[in-house]
Amino acid sequence: MPKMVLLAEYVALNGTDLSDYTKKGELTTKVEEKDVTTYGSQGWKELLGGLKSGELGLDFLQDVAASALDSIMWPLLGTVVTFEVRADNAAVSASNPSYTGSVLINGWNPIQGSVGDEATSGVSYPTSGAVARATA
């Protein structure tokens, strides 16, 4: 059984590689369930897929220095930007697919953490439009 350990995930927002700041990256996609059960279904629930949606969850190690993470993310607040994520920062291939699309930057946590903690910023952005998977 093939196994995988994430060691060098690639994460980009708005064309900027943020991998050096990213501690955790998750892209989830889902489809609404639409109940189309009728009396003709003979007691079995019938479902069809409805609207698709996704979410890009990221945990960053914060950096507020000039031209670092905070100065990159702050101007994006309230905008829809492109994203790209890959399991590895190597070239896109059949064994390293790229997932791309757009997300709404609907929030930013410039300061997050407790005394003695690393400065982090956890965010979760909804996708806007289609998410594509590419292998070349």
Rank of each mutant, 00 (worst) to 15 (best):
L27T: 03
M73K: 10
F83H: 03
V92I: 12
T37V: 09
A65D: 07
T22D: 01
N14D: 15
S102W: 00
E32W: 00
D17W: 10
S95D: 10
T16R: 14
L58K: 04
G101P: 01
T120N: 06
D35L: 06
E46F: 09
T29F: 02
D63N: 15
V31S: 08
Y99N: 02
R86T: 04
T28Y: 00
L56I: 05
L18K: 12
K24I: 14
Q42N: 13
G107I: 07
G113R: 04
A66K: 11
A132W: 05
S124K: 14
T22V: 13
T29E: 13
D20V: 11
E9S: 10
A94I: 09
V103E: 02
L104K: 08
N89S: 15
L51Q: 12
N106H: 05
A134Y: 04
Q42T: 09
D88I: 05
R133D: 00
S95P: 00
I111A: 11
K34P: 00
R133G: 01
N14G: 09
L47F: 08
P126Y: 01
S124E: 07
D59M: 11
N96H: 11
D63W: 03
V81E: 05
V80G: 02
W44S: 10
P97V: 10
V11C: 08
L13M: 05
V131L: 01
K52S: 09
A87V: 03
G101T: 03
V31F: 07
L6E: 06
K45P: 01
L69W: 09
K34N: 05
L13W: 02
L77W: 03
R86W: 04
L51E: 14
L6G: 09
K45F: 02
P126T: 04
V103M: 04
L48T: 13
W44K: 11
E26K: 15
P97F: 05
E84A: 14
D88Y: 07
G54N: 00
T29L: 15
S98W: 02
G50M: 07
G40A: 11
N106V: 04
Y99H: 12
K30V: 00
Y21W: 09
E46R: 12
E33N: 07
P110D: 05
S93R: 05
A132V: 14
I111P: 03
S128E: 15
E26C: 09
S93F: 05
E118I: 11
D70S: 04
E26R: 15
T38G: 08
L6Q: 08
S121R: 02
V103F: 02
A94R: 06
Q112F: 08
A134K: 15
L51M: 11
G49E: 10
L69G: 15
V81Q: 12
Y125R: 07
